[in-house]
């Protein structure tokens, strides 16, 4: 079953995908079609992540709108 989580800033389809050997969350940014899967441990880690980590994640320069000369997004965020 797919649900949509939306506010005026973003629209993301959310569903539980069970094609693998265990379930995972499927997230689709409906404005671009970009998809990411999150497994249970990744989700748990998000639940436990410090607030500064989430604030850093919301900085557009960290990922989607990153300067090209800085290379791909780093694995560790730069709060």
């Amino acid at each position: 079953m797919e649900d949509v989580v939306a506010n005026e800033f973003a629209t993301v389809a959310v569903s539980v995908d069970d094609r693998g050997n265990s379930t995972r969350l499927r997230l689709e940014d409906l404005r671009t079609g970009t998809v990411r899967y999150l497994d249970a441990l990744e989700l748990e880690s998000i639940v436990w992540a410090p607030e500064a980590w989430m604030r850093a994640l919301l900085d557009p320069s960290q990922h989607r709108w990153r300067d090209a000369d800085r290379g791909p997004a780093q694995e560790s965020l730069d709060p």
């Binding site: 709108w65 300067d67 800085r70």
Partner: peptide
């Protein structure tokens, strides 16, 4: 919290 292309 941030802005795009912060090298600017």
């Amino acid at each position: 919290l941030g802005f795009p292309f912060n090298q600017g």
